[in-house]
Each structure stands twice: as C-alpha cells, then as structure tokens.
Amino acid sequence: MDAYLAAITIIALIYMLLSLGLTLQYGLTGLINFGHVGFFAIGAYTSALLSLQGVPLALSIPAAAVTAGLAAWPIGLISLRLRDDYFAIVTLGFSETVRLVITSEKWLTNGVQGIPGIPRLFESISVGIGAQLAVMGVLLVVTLAAIYAMRRIVASPFGRVIEAIRDNEEALQALGKDPARFKIQVLILGSALAGIAGAFYAHYITYIVPDQFIPLVTFYVWMAIIIGGVGRVSGAVVGTGLLMLFLEGSRFLRDIVPGVSEVEMASLRIGVVGLLLVLFTIYRPQGLMGDFTKR
C-alpha cells in the first residue's frame, strides 16, 4: 500500500510538472500548445538514451530539459507568425511528428519495441521502498521549486507582460513591448519543464515506447488545468490532483464493477475526458480555482 501511494504520488508530481508548464504557456501567456506531449517525449528519450550511454542521471535529466527547450525554440519562432488556432494545429502536428520520428528511427529509439532497462534514480538504495521515497523527495523538491518560480513569475514584471500578451497583444505592442521575445521564452521554459517531467517519467517507469506519448496525454494535462482553473498556479495543482484521482479511480472502479474490460475502461476514460472538457468549457470556463469575478 505504501509502495502504491508512493507510486501514484510520483506520477502525480510528473503530471504536476506538465501542468505547470502548460499553465505558463497557455494559462498565463495564452499560447495554445496542443503538442505538450511531444516535449515530454523528447525529454524522456533524451534522458533515457543518455543514461544508457553511461551519462549520470544528474546530467541526463538537465540535458532532457535543454533538448526539450531547444525543440521549443523553432516552434516559438513559428508561433510569432501564426494566429492562435493555427498555432494549436501546428503544435498538435509537431507532437505527432515527434511520435513518428521516434517510431521510425529504430537505430536510435528502437522503434515500437521501445527502450527497456532505463536506469532508475537512486538504484543503489535497495531497502524496501527507500528508492521510491527518494525519487518522490527529489520530484517534490523540483515541483515545489517550479511552483515557487511560477508564483514569482506571476508577481514579476515578466508575469505582467505575458499576461498582457494573453489579454491584449496589440495594447502591449502599443506600449512599446515586444511580445515576440516573451513568447519564445515562455515556450522554451514550459517545454523544458515538460522535458524534465519526461526524464523523471522515463527513469521511473524504466521502459518507454512511442505509444506512451499519444496526444491523449496532452489533453489529460489540458483537462487538469481547465478543471483547476486556467491561468492559476493553484489551479494547476488542484487540477492535477483531480486528474490523478480520476485516472486512478477509474482503475479501482474496474475492480469493483465486474465485466468491464481494460479496453472498455480505456474508452470510458477518453469519454469522460471529453465530457469534462465540454462541460467545463460551457459552464465553468474559469475552472474550480478561477477568478469568479471575471468571465
């Protein structure tokens, strides 16, 4: 039971990092990134491949952040020239293309067979769930640092500028600020967070295949921040908690209700994600933690 709780806490923290990245990009800056899972995948594969080459994890995880951030740079340059909805389509296409590349480039990624035997964090600790607790501790520190950084950003001049980009880009330009630089920075930062999340994911699960990086993951994260409240750091936290409750709860539900197969449950899960996205968009666009004075 303790091992189980530690396991879902770790997964929840990984999703939390993803949600924070998206909150920075969409919630605060208004950039519709539908390709979040692409950067998650880049981080996961970078750190996994490096560590299998003998690079210590203390270097491979930051490297994952760097490659994911670098991958976001061209996407950021593109975002400057596109309207919101086109940018959404381009990012969705980007994440699918990333998945195609990792499926096809067998020499590097072993294709659909995936990469097994990725080293764990704290492999040397073999006492009970000691290693898991240590992983949890590190992730917790990283996540808290990210939350702290986000709160600082919101309160800083940088935060005011990116929120202004979301609310009224023209007005911001009229005030002599150049949104371009800020947009690119935000995309790189958010994607680097997704890359870190991917690295932790790879070293925790120890086995990655292209199928783990489908767009559904992106929309899990979207669901989390929409339910929690777009543009709020607390929203990302609460939303991720509810997302985990939903993902794990649906697993338990299958044990309680007999006759539901795993594939049916998978369908049901997609259906509930869809329903929640629709209902929240219509009835609670500000989410649970959102600002109720505005609409």
Binding site: W222, V263, S267, I270, G271, V272, G274, L277
Partner: peptide
C-alpha cells in the same frame, strides 16, 4: 480556444462511444 477545446471533447466522446 473554447470552441476548439469543446470540439476535441466531442471528438473524444464520439471515439469513446464507438470504442464501447
């Protein structure tokens, strides 16, 4: 964005229904 996100939700619901 609202419409786009809602359309993704509807797509998911259709796919879930067909899967079940």
């Amino acid at each position: 964005v609202s419409l786009l996100v809602a359309s993704i939700g509807i797509g998911f619901m259709i796919r879930a229904g067909l899967g079940i």
